[in-house]
Design a protein around this nucleic acid. Structure first.
Length: 247
DNA sequence: AGGTCTGTTCAGCT
DNA sequence: TAGCTGAACAGACC
């Protein structure tokens, strides 16, 4: 679920916690907080304030005043809950502030991450802001299926399985096409439609609001021409597309 | 009740 | 090097 639009929503939510003194950190989930030991993130952050919240792709990080940076990732099912009314078992990481407020990283699975001083060197430019030239080079080189390349966060970051299918449908490109056979015009079209899909998802509340994403499914039909959708595994992920209008 | 599927990342292999 | 496979977790679904 969480792709770039959900991460952006989380970033905006986290703006509300900036400038408040941290008094407690719950960091005992050693899987979510790996490789840290329980208490390690708490010891580093208690007494500090978070002063900025940033995002690249699906990666979030908050800088503290004169202290470490806190990296967060929502994994496949995580979200940020501000001032949770009650603590749930699915609250994997929590920070409490001096004024009584708090936030939780809530995730029924445990694929979310909280980590000190995250290394983002391997993360490509954000899918919403990548330049035309960067997009052509980073997506267009190699021989991979274009869908698989879109999912590679080191090429560009922020595109997940649903957003990839939505953008390829909008751009009328078949997901299995090798990037080596895409023309510059097709790459530019894909970048334009990807940015459009991202903006719409942020505005409307998430990737699930996409017109194609809603049609995506075993018995789905193309919203453009009504043709039954094809399904296959591409880039290791379930992929849907319309064989009539995506080439 | 049990098997299958799911959003993401990353290690490990070819 | 580039690219593929499967593992990590836990719940939803049939």
């Amino acid at each position: 679920m969480p792709e770039l639009p959900e991460a952006e929503r989380a970033r905006v939510t986290l703006e509300a916690v900036l400038g408040r003194r941290i008094v407690a950190v719950e960091d005992t989930d050693t899987y979510v907080c790996r490789p840290h030991q329980p208490g390690e993130i708490a010891a580093a952050l208690v007494g500090h304030e978070l002063v900025t919240v940033n995002r690249r792709g699906k990666f979030l990080w908050l800088e503290s005043d004169d202290g470490p940076t806190l990296g967060l990732h929502l994994g496949m099912a995580g979200r940020i809950v501000l001032n949770p009314a009650e603590l749930l078992r699915s609250d994997r990481f929590t920070i409490a502030f001096e004024d009584g407020g708090s936030f939780a990283l809530r995730d029924k699975r445990r694929l979310s991450r909280a980590v000190l001083d995250p290394e983002l060197g391997h993360v490509g430019p954000d899918a919403a802001t990548v330049s035309r030239e960067d997009f052509r080079r980073r997506i267009g080189s190699g021989r991979m299926a274009v869908k698989a390349r879109l999912l590679h966060q080191g090429a560009i970051s922020g595109v997940g399985n649903l957003l990839a299918d939505q953008a390829l449908w909008q751009a009328r490109l078949a997901p299995g096409r090798s990037v080596s056979e895409l023309s510059v015009a097709e790459l530019d079209r894909l970048r334009r439609e990807l940015r459009s899909a991202v903006r719409a998802a942020i505005r409307l509340g998430g990737v699930h609001t996409g017109r194609f994403v809603q049609a995506r499914g075993r018995t789905g039909a193309c919203p453009r021409d009504g043709h039954p959708l094809h399904r296959a595994t591409i880039g290791g992920r379930t992929t849907y597309w319309c064989p009539a209008c995506q080439h």
